[in-house]
Design a protein around this nucleic acid. Sequence first.
RNA 1: GUGGGUGUAGCUCAGCUGGUAGAGCACCGCGUUGUGGUCGCGGUGGCCGCGGGUUCGAGCCCCGUCACUCACCCCA
Length: 458
Amino acid sequence: MAARTPRPLSGFPELLPEERVVEDHVLDVLREVFELHGFAGVETRAVEPLSVLLRKGEIDKEVYAVRRLAEVAEEGAAAGAGGDDVLALHYDLTVPFARYVLENAGKLAFPFRRYQVQKVWRGERPQEGRFREFRQADVDVVDAGSLAPHHEAELPLVMADAFARLPLPPVVMQVNNRRLVEGFYRGLGLADTASVMREVDKLDKTSPERVRASLVDGVGLGEREADACLALATLRAEPGSTGFVDEVRGLGVRDELLDQGLDELAAVVAATGAVGGGSFRVVADLSITRGLDYYTGTVYESRMTGYEHLGSICSGGRYDALADDGRTTYPGVGLSLGVTRTLVPLLQRGLLRASRPTPTAVLVAVADEEHRAASAAVAAALRARGVATEVAPSAARFGKQIRYADRRSVPFVWFPQEDGSHEVKDIRSGEQVPADPATWAPPAEDARPTVAWHEPTA
RNA sequence: GUGGGUGUAGCUCAGCUGGUAGAGCACCGCGUUGUGGUCGCGGUGGCCGCGGGUUCGAGCCCCGUCACUCACCCCA
């Protein structure tokens, strides 16, 4: 059988070295910012028992089951009856974290602040910005018994700090509160609130008229109820403004849960209004109802300006009942940044680029194989002072050795001279000067690959 | 899971009513015998996604299948 070029697997993205430099840079920044805010790093195993991932009878979450090959042979026996024994790849980092908290509650100090950067897997149909294997960066605060509400404002501030340091388009975070929405619907006397949320959530993709139509014809609301739902969902607020509270009250619906949700949302918006410096802002948006089903209060979504079609790149919310061992409940709030969703579309457009694909700052030329040791000694001296250095792979013509460096955007080529002296050439300018392996260093901006945003050329 | 689109060189694509497979880029070599990039010339590289059918003859037509892709669903 002839060897065929392997095809990419849809939904399982793999980056080229130059793209990987960008991702690594972003991950470095996230880690730095999360730790600056006092979050401890945690990693959980890739698999969980299926029963942990599928709570309360949800059957078709798009999870990948993991089985031993030998088990597959005995199809059927393991499939139906397995229960807890069936393993599955985690589809987010929050559910495994909740399990981790329960398992280690005795060893953790609460409120517990953790960040977690790992891949997750979902068996969905991929398209731009949607993958089957992708990386998320999560920050969560979990407490035992009760969780102070100010954490719901703290997490957007952490992300604001991160985005301020990343070379990305401006991000707008939209915040809403499920208690507010649930209470409003309840106050209207609606029974099937989940279906209403589902339709309302399509507002960003279709027109209010169509949503209204499906609320009336599909979900079965009366004209007045449908109008009220739309009126609520179309409310917006500028950063820091809590004017929406009076606007909601003005809609005339009264409900205890609604009042609680309004207070919570107002508190988050008021505390986050001043941040971002242009790279990140937080606004109340009462149409945001989406997200995982375990969110109970505050919910977040975020979009990159100009790339809204990718959907939310950073979402999360408050979950009051996800972790519960029967005696103690551990409420939490968290945000999840979709690293892959954010980066891959920008990388493919060439908007986010690394200055070079390899760390190498200096290539030491090799005059001939007899003198390779001399070149290796130069490389060792440079590396001892932190200069990323490699030795030319072959003693080809110097022209080819320079081209080897040029192809990789390695900025400097080092030439050991016959008389024992040295010269280093900046191959971008062509300038070649005497240099000492014991003291020479590249300019700081050339020491390692750098990452930059490149405006689309119109 | 449902519906649409597309599969030709490593990449981007052309290929007429069916008549023996093409371009640009990339890569390699030479011009340039120890300092790259430009330029010129030359070269490597194809089960035309896979299987079947129609035909004297299929990249092209028909059927199936797989993959990729877009939309729905859902969501980072």
